[in-house]
Amino acid sequence: MARNRRLQSPARSLANRLLRRFGNLPLVQRIQNYVFMHVHLFVASLGRICRTPIASAMTVLVIAIALTLPASFHTLVDNLGRAAGNLEATNHISIFLKPDAVNEVGSRIARKLAEHPQVKEARLVTKEEGLQEFRRYSGFGEALRLLDFNPLPAVVAVTPKDSLTRPEDVDRLIEELKGIDQADLVQMDSDWMHKLAAILSIARRTVGMLDLLLALAVLLIVSNTIRLELHAREEEIAITKLMGATDGFVRRPFLYTGFWYGLGGGLLAWILMSILILLLDGPVSRLAELYGGGFELEFLDGGKSLPLILAAAGLGIAGAWGVVDYHLRRMAPT
């Protein structure tokens, strides 16, 4: 029984509050009025921001800059991660055979390796092919002409299976290949990739912390702007409270103001990011070409732009809420 009453009373007090708020207007009308009020505030708060264009633009710009910083770091880290991933995926292991090993030995090794469970492809690069490639790409073609023999060894180019991603597994495969009788040198530049992976994980964590700090900055920027506006509208707030305004009524327009600042900052940050990426796109693809191409700078797509903009709007609302609540508590109950 007592439990029942406990359960009932919050619902009853809510019902009483709603009744007192809306009197005995029909339900449909009440909902209509409520929606109308929000639409009105939505537009009116934007209008108020636009009435002080320079001050508002500066606030929005500061928010945008605060947001562009972590967003560009995210883009940087994501793209580096992807670049590293590309390199990993196309990595070959080269087995340089002993100089005296003839091409036939190489092709036997290649055929055998092709059946290895962790190998996707194994191809022989004969001594002659090697010489041709070397002449074509190295610029030392003339020097080689002076030699009366081919100094290059036969090479077996091994491509590991795509499923072989863990560095330990790759290392194990390399150890195994080193055991091949005629192998002179087994080479894969995986060392620097390990280092890159470590650097990337540090960078990701740093970006995470940066996110928090700059979110806090956005919160403070919005709070401070709203605080100034609260100050300017102190008399208006006092009067509306005397006319029977609830804290919610006083708070609402400021929440919308915060929302607009956040949204504006988010959108502008997105535009700044786009410009940044457009400017970087040329140099990056030139760099990528040097490394074998196939890499394009990835922009913040829908999956990342939308959260950025929504988070900005959310931070705007939160910042406004905090400062208005503080102000209302200070002036309570009048």
Binding site: F22, Q29, Y34, M37, T240, M243, A245
Partner: peptide, 11 residues
């Protein structure tokens, strides 16, 4: 209009 807006009346 202020007291009516506060009380949630329609336009």
């Amino acid at each position: 209009a202020l007291p009516l807006v506060i009380a949630g009346f329609g336009p």
